[in-house]
Structure formats: C-alpha cells, structure tokens
Amino acid sequence: MAWNLFRFCAALRVRVLGSVMILLVLAVVGFTYYAVVVTNYWPAVLAGGVNSYYAFAILIPFHLLLVMLLWSYFAAVLTNPGRVSSNWRSDVDEESGDPLVLTGLELSKPMLNLQQTASLVGSGIQKIRYCRKCNQLKPPRCHHCSACGRCILKMDHHCVWVVNCVGAFNYKFFLLFLFYTFLETSFVTIILLSNFITFFNEGEIPASPESLATTFLTFVLNLAFALSVLGLLVMHLSLVAANITTIEASYEKKTTPKWRYDLGRRKNFEQVFGIHKRFWLIPAYAEEDLRRMQTLHGLDYPSKPESDSQHY
C-alpha cells in the first residue's frame, strides 16, 4: 500500500509539474506576443506610412516562426515517445548482430519473470536486455523511465519542458521545437534591439514607460532563451550526427567504445528526420518514410560490422 501511495504521489507530482511547465511556456509565448505585436508593431501597421510596411514585414516571419514553434512543441508533448509491446521479443543478438536461437517456451510467452530470465542467462544466453521494473524484454536502445514508469523506445531523456519522454517517436519534434525556439527568440531579440538603439541614439523614450518596460523584459527573456537553447540545440545535433542518445552518450558508450550505430552523418540524420527533405522542417513524417524506414518505429536499428567500427 505504501509503495502504491508513493507511486501515486510521484505520478501526481509529474502531472502537476507538467501542467505548470506547459502554462509557463504558453505564458512566455503570450508575453512575447503582447510585447512584439500589441505593443510595438501592430500599432505601427495601423498608423500607416512607410513604417507600416516595415512593421508588416516583421510580423509575417514572427507569426510563421511562432506557428512552427507551437506546432513542434505540442507534437513533442502529445506524441507517445514509444511504448514496448508486451509480446515483443528479439530474434537477433543486438551485441553481435547474430540470430538468437530462442525458440523455446520461455520466449513464446508474452512476459518473462525473473526465474525464466535467470534460466536463460544460466544457459549461456547473456545478451538479452530485460527490464525488471516492467517485467518484460527490452528492444535495442530502449530504457526505463522512472518518471513515466515504463520503458521508452530509443529513450533520450525525460524533458520537463515538454512534460514527456523524448524517444523514438517524438525526438524529431523535440529537435524542431528547439530549432524554432532558437529562431523565434533570436528574431525577437534582434527586432526589439532597435528600440534600445533608437533610445540611446536619440536620448528620448520612443514609447510609454509601460511599453518600454514590457519591451525590455521581453528582450532580456528572449535573449536568455536564445543563448540557452542554442547550446542545447548544438549538443543534440552533435548526438544526431553520431546516432547516439543522451543516455547512450552518458553511460553505454563509455563501456562500448566501438559504437555500432554510427552509419555516417547523412544516414544518422535520416534515421531521425526521414528521407524526404520536404518533411525535415515540419513535425511530421512522410507516409513512405514510415512504411520503409524501420528505425522510425523504434525497434530495429541497422548497425555496421565490427570491422568497420574500429575508429570509434
């Protein structure tokens, strides 16, 4: 009972924190929208004249980036990162790439218990990945998330900002969220910077004190987000280029220096974003990619032969 109560409290804490983080993201977006559109550029559009064309030209990319940011964000939040089927089992030894001769009654069952797993390991088969918390087999690159309480396919990390695990099915959406957040916050920082340059050059306040305070706070907030997201984006793009997740880079690669999933930057990139270029910048996949690329389903990952991974 105490254990169940602990899990209930942990799940409640995750849900409450998740709701707060979503509201925080929406609050930052709303505050930025108010400062950019309502306070600065929409009044300039209504005023007419030459400045109205400039203001209108600013608002178009601002709204486009904002739509892509929110689309990517909610795609990362609402998409299941990847759940392991209860009857999944591997036919391949993921360490060596050789077929596993596991046709006995133990693996014909949808679930394994600890005694069955121990008997398999004791019989000489030691390359099977098994989750004792979920009481089931784990596919390659799958890890258990304590926050979600289940195993996640190709788990990268549990992100409090998207209130979800980042895994096989939503990693692309998470990266696009970072990408469009960086573009949007950088764009806002640049367009609001002109207000301060005008103020210091002319020595007068170009707007009311309230508008100036709102603009200044928005400028600082977006500058801070742009710099922080840039570092995170660069880190994740380097992980994509090497076809490795945050968890794998932190733990598994230390014990597996010859990383077998690194197939080259192009193929590594396509395993996350797909083959069709027109879908690379939107949080969606082409139907052909979902049909042809097994890696997008989070269960099967091609690896290079042992002889080709000596450089790692």
Score class of each variant (00 low, 15 high):
F74H: 07
D93I: 06
L24D: 09
T32Q: 04
A147W: 10
V29G: 06
L23P: 00
M68K: 13
T117V: 14
C131V: 01
I22M: 03
S119Q: 14
V20M: 08
G97E: 02
R129H: 13
S19V: 13
R141S: 01
H143K: 01
I125F: 10
I60D: 01
Y33M: 07
M155S: 07
Y33T: 14
K154D: 00
G49F: 04
P99L: 00
K154Q: 05
I22C: 04
C148M: 09
A55M: 05
W88V: 01
C151Y: 02
C142E: 03
K127H: 14
P140S: 11
L105Y: 15
S90M: 09
G49D: 03
G104C: 04
N80D: 15
Q116A: 10
L153D: 01
F74D: 10
S123W: 01
V50E: 10
D93Y: 00
C148N: 03
P140D: 12
L17D: 06
V25H: 12
Q126Y: 05
N87F: 03
L70D: 02
P81M: 02
A147K: 15
Y130N: 10
A44Y: 03
Y41F: 15
P99R: 03
G124Q: 08
G82F: 01
G82D: 02
T79I: 02
T117A: 06
N80E: 06
N87D: 15
S19I: 12
W71G: 09
A76V: 00
P140A: 13
L69A: 08
V101S: 09
T32G: 08
L59V: 04
S146V: 15
G124K: 13
V37C: 02
Y54R: 12
L59R: 06
V77F: 03
K133E: 10
L46W: 15
G104H: 11
L100A: 05
L105N: 14
I22R: 06
M155Y: 02
S108A: 14
L137K: 11
S108F: 12
L65D: 03
I60M: 04
K127I: 01
C142T: 15
L100H: 05
P99V: 00
C145V: 07
N113H: 06
L120C: 07
L24K: 05
W42S: 07
Y54L: 13
V38M: 06
T117L: 11
P61H: 06
G122Q: 10
L102M: 12
L114N: 11
L120E: 05
V29M: 11
D91V: 08
S86F: 12
A75R: 15
T103Q: 14
S123L: 04
H63S: 14
L153R: 11
S19C: 11
Q115S: 13
Q136R: 12
L59S: 05
L100V: 06
P61L: 09
L100Y: 00
V45K: 06
R129L: 06
C142R: 07
S86Y: 11
F56L: 12
S108R: 15
R83Q: 12
A47E: 14
A75S: 15
Q136S: 09
K138P: 00
Y41K: 03
H144G: 09
S96A: 05
H63G: 08
C151N: 04
L64W: 10
K127A: 10
L23S: 13
L59P: 01
Y41G: 05
L17A: 13
G48V: 05
R83M: 09
L66I: 13
G49L: 03
P99E: 05
F31I: 02
A147D: 15
